[in-house]
Design a binder for these strands. Sequence first.
DNA 1: TTGTACGCGTTATCAC
DNA 2: GTGATAACGCGTACAA
Lengths: 347, 347
Amino acid sequence: MTGSTASLRRRRRKAQRVTLNEVAELAGVSPSTVSLYIRKPDAVSEDRAHRVSEAIAKLGYVPNLMAGGLAAASSRIVSVIVPSIRNAFFAETVSTIQAALGSEGFQVLLGHTEYSEAQEEALVRAALSWAPAAIVLTGLSHSHGTRALLAASDVPVVEMWELGGPTIDMAVGFSHEEAGAAAARHLIARGRKNIAYVGARLHEDHRAARRADGFLRELAPESGQAGRIIRHPGPATADAGALLLNRALQQFPGLQGLACSNDLVALGVLFECQRRGIRIPEDLAVIGFGDLGFSASCNPPLTTIRPSGDVIGLEVARLVLASVKGKPEAPEPVIDTSFLLVERRST
Amino acid sequence: MTGSTASLRRRRRKAQRVTLNEVAELAGVSPSTVSLYIRKPDAVSEDRAHRVSEAIAKLGYVPNLMAGGLAAASSRIVSVIVPSIRNAFFAETVSTIQAALGSEGFQVLLGHTEYSEAQEEALVRAALSWAPAAIVLTGLSHSHGTRALLAASDVPVVEMWELGGPTIDMAVGFSHEEAGAAAARHLIARGRKNIAYVGARLHEDHRAARRADGFLRELAPESGQAGRIIRHPGPATADAGALLLNRALQQFPGLQGLACSNDLVALGVLFECQRRGIRIPEDLAVIGFGDLGFSASCNPPLTTIRPSGDVIGLEVARLVLASVKGKPEAPEPVIDTSFLLVERRST
DNA sequence: TTGTACGCGTTATCAC
DNA sequence: GTGATAACGCGTACAA
């Protein structure tokens, strides 16, 4: 199956690590000068700077950040903890954070909670072991232990993707309840009477659950019922969307509008409608959440709510940077990135 | 927009860090014993182990991994460097790696190259600063500097997602040329005469380019032409798929079969076909690559090539673990995970 | 601007 | 099984 493939290196030598001292020796300067050059090149005289940079290149010197961090009692690591990187929202945000922070010399230590608070706590503890410059958490719900760990440390904390509750330190996001309410209002404004919300993993995904809450809140004056939500325990996939549509159709005869917890779910709904001959939006109006890459290209294009994951990432990075540079008081530690209802042809 | 939101903590105290010495003092044992207990709990007598664990809990001790790493000259960090975490393939693999490694006490330091070798080199250099337990790279193409950096270190290296060339150390993946050839063969076997390959970002994504090469290789005996590839410079999105379909239709009148560099591209093709009234597979057979979450739920379900990203992640983690535990000779440093052509209704 | 001395918190080695 | 001791490589006063 595969072409010729050879392993070039199987030896594992001791690889004496080049130290700052050796660089200093070769350059004919003191170690502290080298250290200074690395951190603030401009603070060193031009002629020595040149000699040092040459020595570094010649020796292939790579700084030992563990030693540096130990001496400085802090590192340039930023721990980013998300439920799952497979989720496109978080992939986008993490990508943005890493890009913004990377150019400033920070590195991202990644962790997945799989929607478990216990797992999150373990990840926070592990992160703290590195004296990180900051810790970025997803959402506002955390275990008692997590809060205690964080409170006992002096590490800046940014909570992202959710607003509308007490925050630990800083937060960037928006109210998911409002987003859910906006979806309901949109459907109602389009004249749909018989509407419902379908969601995946609502028992674990607090934010999707809050969107469902907001949806229901707008519904209450209409028909007063609480059962307009259909849940799927598994992850938000197109498959789940097809399943959920069928259950919704069965449970609510004459269904006219459907809000989905995720565009992926909406995609599944859309395909299943095609199969069953249900016309969108004539027979059923569909609104998603996320405005994922494909949402505008669907047939019909998907009306959805755009949370601006990249803006969240950017603002998170900005807060991290500000808190590291020790701004006396960050101007606004709670940033509402809001969301946008993007109306397309599916409603 | 948002409910009441208060920041509970804005103070930044010095937060005296609890050290191993303090734990030892409280437990009434020597620091060495505490250190030993943390690394090998069984090597400590039961009664002392108990006292130590109690002291740790009482003090809320969190080990300083920078000090540990400095002393041990190695860390439990694994650097994983991918082109982009927004790409579902890599998101899945990274997720799998992090899960498998996390349970063994390793942490993932993430990096994105954005398909730039220079960026990759910078990331490798940064990773090396932490004396990582291993470095995981994507693909087989790396800059000279990257190779030099890696060769000068004794860090185990795993290259993933590609096979079919010389590897630095260990590799897990498959031949993309074979995958492209398989797509062409499948289309030909289904009786399609006039077929083409559409790809996004082929100039940067070496693996997608090699799939195109393989596709062409199978074609050659048929019609001898080299122009059966259409490129889109941007990233692989559904949008790009729609664009590419239209260009393919225009360039190759009577087109009967289309291989896409990515299922997302295929999704866009599929929707555009719906809009233009092109029937799949009657008028046009479509095959994708990736078997992403939605591919089985499409209408019609998408024939595609499944690369088993999770298997790659698992094998990468296994190699990392094996090389860290210092197995004298890993049984097989080059693992072919192969791929699966999943035939569904779009061909 | 440059150099000296010290300590950061832990692991590894060695005696006990 | 346990505990003293010496590194580990670098930042950071401080002095020059």
